[in-house]
Design a protein around this nucleic acid. Sequence first.
DNA 1: TTTAGGG
DNA 2: CCCTAAA
Length: 682
Amino acid sequence: MVDGEKESEESDFGKAGVEFSMRTAVDGEKGTEESDFRKIVASDPVVYQLVRVEGDGRLVPATDDEVMEVEHLLEEDKSGLASDGDKKHFDGRVSNEGLPSKKSDFEGLSQSENTEVDSQELNARLEYIEVMLPKVKQEERLRMSPESANHSTKCMDVNHQTFDGRDETQACKDKLQPENTSMETAPSSMALNDRQGVQLESAETCSGPTNQAVTSSSTVSGTCTSSMPDFSILKGDICLDNLSIRELQEAFRATFGRQTSVKDKLWLKRRITMGLTNSCDVPTSNFVMKDNKIVLKEVKEEPSKLQKSKTEESTLPTDQVTDPTNSNFQDLPTSPTNQTEDQQVASKRLRKPLSEYDEKNENLQMEQFAAKRVRKPTRRYIEELSEFETRECSARLLSSVKNSGHDQSSPKSRIRPVRDIGSRGPSFSTRQDSLGGFGIQVPYVSRVRRGRPRKNFVTLMNYHPGGIGPNLVKTALGIPALQQNSEGGSRVRKARTPPMLIPQPNFVDEGEKRDAETIYGDDEHDLGLEEFDASGDNTDGNANTEPASKCGVRRKHHRAWTLGEVLKLVEGVARYGAGRWSEIRRLAFASYSYRTSVDLKDKWRNLLRASLAQDPTDEGVGPLATLAKNSRKHASVPIPTPILSRVRELAEMNSQTCTELGPSKITGHGGRNVQEKGSGFL
DNA sequence: TTTAGGG
DNA sequence: CCCTAAA
């Protein structure tokens, strides 16, 4: 589904070699200052000029021939198509003057082809047209420069047709595509298109598109194919009108990534609109919705300023919750990249149908309703939230692929391919678990990052731009996930992987003859334990939470230590000695990639403490022991006393032997000792 | 980068 | 679990 969408998008953009696009004819053609342009936009932007998009992305005024050609095509298309809403092309004179920075803000307003028109939208449009048409004509007269007169007039005709008629952009595009493809040569444009494809892929369903991010390639976005409708925003507004408070809240959450307890419908609407508008940062913000009508708001400010003022003005006194927008502004400095990122995020969130949230968070929402005031969500909470979304998202993406590449599973189902050893390895990896069905992991990007940047960041950068699309496609095609893993993983994680891939054999190799027996036995136990784990923690845990722990910098999802893990840990300590956590982790915990050496250390510390707390008199102290046991009942996995005692024993032995004898030999002895005990207990 | 220890 | 100093 997603793939399909994306595919179509990509294909659309892949063809954008040379295209025709409407662009607002600015008065005086060149040398128009921004203020002028603003004025135009504010008053009435509906004069168009045809431009041609060159391979390198430049906009070139269309020649008469071209205009004619397009017109012809449009006429043709119009006849064949049903009629509905108009599509306005507010393509802000993109970048052909060489100062695209600000002006690009205005770009990307052309119509998307997949906009569905519900009656409301249609009405709104019609009303809008009613209002705007006179102005348009007037404006046309005023603005027509000698040079652009030709084109703009013709284009106006075209657009007028569109008003009552058809979204001819699609048609235009379609018609032009063959030609485009044939003419397409410049690789740069391809890259451009790709990029935009990605961009759009994330922003597509968002009613407040974030085309701004494409500013560098804005020339293309101004074309017919650009699917950032100014009306989508309006549409969003209209939709908002019909939403219940709860839905509005959902939308709010989708927009800002957090929940709100505000029940003020108006406020919510404004907020959401604002969020969307900010995402687009387009002059359309000049339009405001009033009673389902679109009203042109006189704004003389610069777009950027406009944002601010809007923000301020819409910060209602009733707002108890911290203003998301404000916080956004604070957190993310005005650096364009950051903003872009943020907007992407927003749009991504929007991508999710609200219904999803309805289902999943209904309870939460209701609870929040019950509670009068909800305290400001903690950062952690927000993070979790975002993680949830992301996870869900990836899960959904994968659901369609679930059945692919099953053959990869090894005969020993428990020996899972180790996707990534370091807990911060590649941002995406895949794994299969034949036990409880298996989950596949996908690359995902954690939106919230805390602390200093880590490797993930780079990885992320690597994969996000072009990676996600192809990846998904690949996966969707059923290419074994593992392949991807090795492919992508090795790229990031150096050459550490190979040895890890076969952890169990490693054990055997290290073990002596004598040990082999015990090891094999132990292996069996371990396997059993792992099975145990799988039923309990691993099944759902691994597949889902792991990527989070890896990619996200967020706090690691709490993972209860299973008995099997504890045993492995103990065994590892026995074998390699306490303190050599890295080694233990590498060798004994190869299959538990989510346990870091620090984790092992911590766990061991806890174990030790527990064992000491319980063992000193070995059940001698009645109350204390029982208390300990009871309290241990709290723990997800009560640690059997034998294990605890063994831990203590090990610790003692370790401390002794380490000081007296060489650690290396001793470890072997200790290991065997443990093995015996372990087998006895298990 | 790993280990040890505090929080 | 997280964080950080120290090696």
